[in-house]
Amino acid sequence: MVNIRDLDPHASPLDYYGAELRRLREAAGLNQKELGSIIFCTGSLVGQIETARKVPTRDFSERADAALGTEGALSRLAGLVLRSQLPTWFQAYAEMEARAAYIATYQAQMVYGLLQTRAYARAVLATGLPTNLDELVDARLERQRILARENPPMTWVVLDEAALYRPIGGREVMREQLAHLLSYQHHRWLRTQILPFGAGEHASLIGSFNTLRFEDGPDIVYTEDLISGHMTANSETLKEASLRYAHLQAAALSVEDSAALITRAMEERYGPGERAVA
């Protein structure tokens, strides 16, 4: 059955995407089933996306662009659509994050969102019992594309050692996640340090925070509580955050020693098989 429903393209990014997909498909002289067969999906899926009942993935968008000869039009829209699936209170931060020239983050409980694998992100996001888990995972991975840009932001990550040992998602997921962290070891614009348990009390026992800097515009500090996030450009807050972050970096292991600790945790805690006990 062909899905037909009038959309208001101005209602949401998802509605706009659906209207554009239909317009481009019809301009190419294809019905939903024909387009689906070309891009290896069902006509029903095409119809659901055209009627804003399903969120398109980036893979779907790229295949549809290739089939319809749209020069990346749908792929460019995909980022906007996926970002709209983020919690409303987080969307403004995600937009600022995508524009930042420098990102500094301290994470007390888990791996930073921009460095999470799909499986790890899914396990983290599932704890909130969302009804749109797949879309939230896709949106988180979409955010990570800024690290692969031609001109990515300089990103400095300080992770508490606890993030290495909290078995989010299980053993295989954690091993994959720690290996993923190590894959950035020689990335020119990204550095990761581990704040070891041995540091004891430290400058951010109160919790995680991010600082964003821009080529133009004021710096921003971002924090989260249980149900929302908070951004501020207050100069005193920025000064305090910078001071605390400097202390965290000083207390953390070097980048090289941090990589060694990640490797050790991956192999000893999450390595394949059980070690023999004498």
Rank of each mutant, 00 (worst) to 15 (best):
V2F: 05
V2Y: 04
D6A: 15
D8N: 15
D8K: 12
H10K: 08
S12C: 11
S12W: 09
L14K: 05
D15L: 04
Y16G: 12
A19K: 01
R23Q: 09
R25F: 05
G29W: 05
G29L: 05
L30G: 01
N31C: 09
L35I: 05
I38M: 09
I39R: 05
F40D: 15
F40K: 14
G43S: 13
S44P: 00
L45M: 14
V46C: 11
D59N: 11
A66K: 15
A67S: 06
L74K: 12
V81Q: 03
R83Y: 02
Q85K: 15
W89Y: 14
A92F: 06
A92N: 10
A94D: 00
E95L: 10
I103G: 01
A104T: 01
A104Y: 01
Y106I: 05
Q107V: 02
A108V: 07
Q109L: 14
Q109S: 13
Q109F: 07
V111L: 07
Y112M: 06
G113R: 03
L114A: 10
R118A: 02
Y120V: 00
A121P: 01
R122L: 00
R122K: 12
A123E: 02
V124D: 04
V124L: 15
V124Q: 13
T127D: 03
G128R: 05
G128Y: 01
N132V: 08
V137H: 11
V137A: 11
D138S: 14
Q144A: 11
Q144D: 07
L147N: 06
L147G: 05
R149Y: 06
R149L: 15
N151K: 15
P153G: 02
M154A: 13
T155S: 07
V157W: 05
V157E: 06
L159K: 03
E161S: 07
A162E: 04
Y165I: 14
P167N: 11
I168S: 05
I168E: 02
G169K: 01
G170N: 03
R171I: 08
V173N: 04
M174Y: 00
M174W: 01
A179N: 14
L182K: 11
L182Q: 09
P196Y: 08
P196E: 12
P196A: 11
E201Q: 11
H202L: 06
H202P: 04
H202R: 10
L205I: 13
L205G: 05
N210F: 01
N210H: 07
R213G: 07
R213W: 09
L226R: 01
I227N: 07
I227V: 12
T232A: 12
A233V: 07
S235H: 13
E236M: 14
T237P: 02
K239L: 12
K239N: 09
K239M: 12
A246M: 06
H247V: 09
S254D: 08
S254V: 07
E256H: 13
D257M: 12
A259F: 04
E267V: 06
G271K: 12
G271C: 13
A276I: 08
V277D: 07
A278M: 02
